[in-house]
């Protein structure tokens, strides 16, 4: 490697580190000194009630939002101070599933899913079409390449967003509520996909969820956020033993329903 650009040597055991991050929107503090580490090749789940700041944390991890104070390291590189074009380079490591899918509504499903390939790969048209078919298959969608996002159901849109996020096979995938609004069978296959990516391809995943069941299934580490504060951060196995009153309440409500 002779080029002078930031070539990150992945020597730190963490793919993402969020350090002392504070963020306010106007007078409204949303993140209050958040610290969070995501181990390389592992799945980190962030649990928390609506409006607690989960999406805001995730947008910091990929540089869509800049913290008021604190740092975010991706493979050891501080992305809060990077110029925009270098930040774009760092983002090639990422895939992200948006909470509301965020599909390009002027493009068909096929064009949406192939967008990252057309931008960043040199594959032939046929190879791209094949790849798109394969990734749509992973999320149980067939023969919808020619449809427009407006013609799809909410759950289908979400799954197209999933396919688009993983089509370049990135090393880090951020999932903002990947299974919310999906039926139990599809939820199961998405959970399996996340597990599989981690086990077989050593993909690092960050999953935001409301769903404690899914969380326990896919997580290596779980963090619970409440009103912009990380109130618990433990390996998945230990979450049931948490003594934090909010975490106990959050989990108990869920377990009672089972």
């Amino acid at each position: 490697m002779t080029d002078t650009t930031v070539v990150s040597v992945p020597d730190s055991p963490y793919a993402i580190e969020v350090k002392n991050v504070c963020k306010s929107f106007g007078p409204n503090p949303v993140l209050k000194n958040v610290n969070l580490k995501v181990r390389r090749g592992k799945t980190r789940v962030i649990l928390g009630p609506s409006g607690s700041g989960k999406t805001v944390i995730m947008k910091h991890m990929i540089g869509l939002l800049k913290p008021d104070s604190g740092n975010i390291l991706v493979d050891g590189v501080d992305i809060t101070t990077l110029p925009h074009n270098e930040l774009l380079n760092v983002r090639r490591k990422f895939g992200m599933v948006f909470q509301q899918a965020a599909l390009f509504d002027s493009m068909t499903v096929g064009e949406n899913v192939s967008f990252p390939l057309r931008e960043h790969s040199v594959l032939s048209k046929e190879a791209i079409a094949e790849k798109v078919r394969e990734k749509l298959g992973v999320v149980d969608l067939k023969n919808i390449e020619h449809k427009y996002p407006a013609e799809l159901s909410g759950g289908m849109r979400k799954r197209v967003g999933l396919a688009r996020a993983i089509v370049l096979e990135p090393s880090i995938v951020l999932y903002d509520e990947p299974t919310t609004g999906l039926d139990p069978l599809t939820t199961d296959s998405v959970d399996k996909m996340i597990l599989d990516a981690s086990k077989r391809l050593n993909v690092t995943s960050v999953v935001i969820s409301h769903d404690v069941g899914s969380a326990l299934l896919v997580a290596d580490d779980i963090a619970v956020i409440h009103e912009g504060v990380i109130v618990e951060d433990v390996p998945a196995k230990e979450i049931r033993d948490s003594t934090h009153p909010f975490v106990r309440e959050f989990l108990h409500t869920w377990f009672r329903k089972q």
Partner: peptide
Amino acid sequence: DAMEVMAVN
């Protein structure tokens, strides 16, 4: 934002 995330300016 989605475009940004996919490393397209």
